[in-house]
């Protein structure tokens, strides 16, 4: 798009839209925290006993209980819980007494890393395949791409992961398949992320390709694409600038709807590849009944969901001027 086409008003509208969406996210965030809090209430574990440790006297436990506000009404406790949350206090692990926030801080990075490494190739590839399939509709290429994407949708994440581990990692010994190899800018770090990123990204290529195909096909027969051709634009411009550009609007929405799927996939992928992320932390905590840790991990995953949705919304407005105006 010509840079000259944007103007001050438009940018303000965009900002206003983003702020609006941010405000709308607040009740959702509140709901997530409330559920996280209630989760702790329904389990029969006494947080004061846990925090005091096995050797503590009843007096000490009582003191801690008062200290934590556990003797107060539920809504006060919720307030206190929010207060502690705001100060980065999510409690300590029952298993190893490490503060939950510390554990989360260490795992968020690898999870973000994995998601980024997966989406950075999967979404462009999906869009490319979908566009090719739509433009050459009915051709051999179209059929192959569609067959591939249907297969991609029906194969579960863990299966893709296990197959990659078995062949690439184990039999052929080409790439490592357990854990993170170090920072991404090192060769070991890069090698270690390839298989997990292929696994998590792989399940995304098919759906993105299919949505893009449908959407591009739709736009290709639109009146304004005919106008674009009638004014003498090259096919490349017609497809990229008019068909694909407009087709991306519904694709972004649909990809946004798949965020839950992405988070679920991340949990599975991290578990299969022993990737030290929030997903694996959550699974481990749940399996060992480490409730504070599980709660923290779930809150972070839900937060991730909210943030990604917000990003999708803003991106959506960036793509469609009619949304900005609304």
């Amino acid at each position: 798009m010509a840079a000259a086409g944007t103007k001050e008003d438009d940018r303000t509208a965009m900002l206003r839209h983003a702020l609006h969406r941010l405000l709308l996210a607040i009740p959702v965030l509140f709901g997530v925290l409330l559920i996280g809090f209630l989760l702790m209430q329904v389990v029969p574990t006494d947080a004061a006993v846990v925090r005091a440790g096995p050797t503590a006297t009843p007096d000490v436990i009582e003191a801690i209980r008062r200290d934590l506000g556990l003797d107060r009404p539920l809504y006060v406790q919720f307030g206190l819980y929010l207060w502690r949350l705001a100060h980065g206090d999510l409690g300590v692990s029952i298993i190893n007494n490490v503060p939950v926030t510390q554990e989360l801080a260490a795992t968020i990075g690898p999870t973000l890393e994995l998601m980024a490494a997966s989406l950075i190739w999967a979404i462009p590839l999906g869009i490319l395949l979908g566009t090719v399939a739509a433009y050459y509709r009915g051709s051999v290429a179209d059929r192959l791409i569609m067959a591939f994407s249907v297969a991609g949708v029906s194969v579960p994440v863990f299966f893709v992961g296990l197959v990659l581990i078995w062949f690439v990692g184990f039999k052929w010994q080409l790439l490592p398949f357990t854990g993170r190899g170090g920072p991404l800018w090192t060769a070991d770090g890069l090698r270690a992320i390839i298989l997990p990123a292929l696994t998590l990204g792989g399940v995304f290529v098919g759906p993105v390709a299919r949505m893009t195909r449908t959407s591009v096909l739709d736009v290709l027969s639109a009146d304004h694409v005919r106008t674009a051709r009638a004014k003498g634009l090259s096919e490349r411009l017609v497809v990229l600038h008019h068909a694909l550009r407009n087709a991306l609007i519904p694709v972004v929405t649909l990809v946004g709807l798949q965020i839950g799927f992405l988070l679920g996939g991340a949990v599975v992928t991290e578990t299969v590849f022993s990737w030290p992320g929030v997903g694996r932390l959550a699974v481990g905590a749940i399996l060992s009944s480490d409730l504070p840790m599980a709660q923290g991990a779930i809150i972070v995953l839900s937060l991730g969901f909210i943030v990604v949705n917000l990003l999708v919304d803003v991106l959506y407005a960036g793509l469609d001027p009619r949304v900005r105006a609304a």
Partner: peptide, 28 residues
Amino acid sequence: AMIFQEPMTSLNPVHSVGAQIVEAMRAH
């Protein structure tokens, strides 16, 4: 050159009016 019946749908909704005219000129 050609113009069509439906002015509502004949222009691309996501590009500014100016960008669409400029594009037509640049093509030639």
